[in-house]
Design a protein around this nucleic acid. Structure first.
Length: 188
DNA sequence: CAGTGGATGCTCT
DNA sequence: GAGCATCCACTGT
């Protein structure tokens, strides 16, 4: 079942854990999401914190769309916009389990090891072919497919990665025990 | 395994 | 001009 806009039109802190185990495909390439992070409007670590700019304009738009930005000059990062228009909240997709289109992923990444194909936001975007060209596109329309999960996953929680502000917030969610995480979750 | 540093480009002050 | 929501290769134990 494809998830529509209503799924994303909720608090980013409810949507983020609900995304674990959901399948993300871009042109048929992807798999179940195993790691995400939540960023809300009051969050000094979030792009929307300082107000609307050209780069983060999509974050201020309606929910259920992709927000894609360039990171450290050479990587792309994918977010799902949440809540209502103007709230500037989004979930960063950090890792997924490669399940569909492994050959395409291996070719784009130039590696064989399935464990490293999508274990990190930059790697995931490279493996799925995500660039700024997809920024602002709706997640329930091609090339995206976002499919509901079939079983309830066990979710681990911890601090976010790679930020210098609001580091104490436990807004990183992962599939407990997954070997496809960008880094292990802190043990319970 | 831990730590370090380079690549690289865009955004915002 | 500083500062990144990163990744990879390299060093040293």
């Amino acid at each position: 079942m494809t998830l529509d806009k209503d799924f994303f039109a909720r608090s980013v802190h409810d949507v983020a854990p609900d995304l674990i185990g959901i399948t993300l495909l871009v042109d048929g390439v992807g798999g179940p999401i195993v790691e995400v992070e939540a960023y809300d409007h009051e969050d000094p670590a979030a792009h929307g914190y300082g107000g609307r700019t050209e780069r983060n304009a999509t974050m201020f738009g309606p929910p259920g769309r992709a927000y894609v930005y360039r990171s450290y000059g050479l990587h792309w990062c994918l977010n799902f916009v949440c809540e209502e228009e103007g709230s500037a909240s989004a979930v960063l997709i950090r890792a997924l389990e490669p399940a569909h289109g492994l050959d395409a992923m291996r070719e784009r990444r130039g590696l064989d090891d399935s464990r490293l194909l999508c274990a990190g936001p930059g790697r995931l975007c490279q493996a799925l072919g995500i660039t700024r060209a997809l920024d602002g596109l709706a997640l329930d329309e091609p090339p995206f497919e976002v499919l509901a999960r079939e079983t309830e996953p066990k979710i681990a929680v911890g601090p976010r990665i790679g930020i210098t502000k609001a580091m104490e917030q436990p807004w990183r969610y992962g599939l407990a025990g997954s070997r496809y995480l960008s880094r292990p979750m802190r043990s319970v």
